[in-house]
Amino acid sequence: MIKNLLNGSKIELAAFKDADLTYLEKWYNDIYFLRNFDMIPAFPRSSQELNFTLKNLRESNDKFMFSINSIENGKIIGITGFENILWNNGTATIYIGIGDKNYIGCGIGNEALHLTLEFGFEELNLHKIQLTVLSYNKPAIRLYEKSGFKKEGTYREFIYRDGTRYDMYLYGILRSEWEATIK
């Protein structure tokens, strides 16, 4: 039997649609979301700027982006995907962001991460998936470690926010390590 890699019990991963751009624009104007999702300065982005970014993503062969949709109501609640895919090495960088605050802390991130990892390892046939996370994002660090990611390094005092320097951690998970977590 062929499993549906993109469906979980609470969410499904789907193609990012133009109608979803409204939500992405809202999240890219939410400083809290941006400071946990990205390393660049948290400045607001217009739908026009984001549309250009999405166009480049869709034309790329080393990036994938999914919307995270609630199965209950079909609403987009976040984004996940891969970037910097090196096909010859079987490696990629994963990202995940829950933009709808009503869905934070209820297992959505865990399920979205699991589905994205499953897609990466089983459909894209990746060998290693990596990520970066800022040291102040404790909930994300707990999620990654619980999912089997191993801390591989630290960029010390990498980012400056609100008068304080924070480290950026590098995490990775090998296909064999991921397979051990799902048995």
Rank of each mutant, 00 (worst) to 15 (best):
L5W: 02
L6M: 07
K10R: 13
E12T: 14
A14W: 08
A14D: 15
D18C: 09
D18N: 15
T22P: 07
Y23K: 13
E25S: 10
W27L: 11
Y28W: 05
Y32K: 10
Y32R: 06
L34I: 11
L34V: 07
R35L: 10
N36G: 15
F37R: 05
D38E: 15
Q48E: 15
L50M: 02
N51A: 15
L57C: 10
L57A: 04
R58I: 10
E59C: 06
E59T: 08
D62H: 02
K63G: 00
F64K: 13
F64H: 11
S70N: 02
S70A: 12
I71Q: 05
I71L: 15
E72W: 00
E72D: 10
N73E: 14
G74N: 15
I76L: 14
G78M: 09
I85M: 07
I85F: 06
N88K: 13
N89C: 06
N89D: 12
T91W: 03
A92I: 04
I96M: 04
I98F: 09
K101P: 02
I104C: 04
G109C: 08
N110A: 12
L113Y: 02
L113G: 04
L113Q: 07
H114A: 01
H114I: 03
L115V: 06
T116C: 01
E118Y: 04
F119D: 04
E122V: 02
E123F: 08
L124C: 08
K128R: 13
L131F: 05
L143K: 06
K146T: 03
S147H: 06
F149W: 10
F149V: 12
K150L: 14
G153T: 06
E157A: 02
Y160K: 14
Y160M: 03
G163A: 08
Y171H: 05
Y171Q: 00
E179D: 13
T181M: 15
T181K: 15
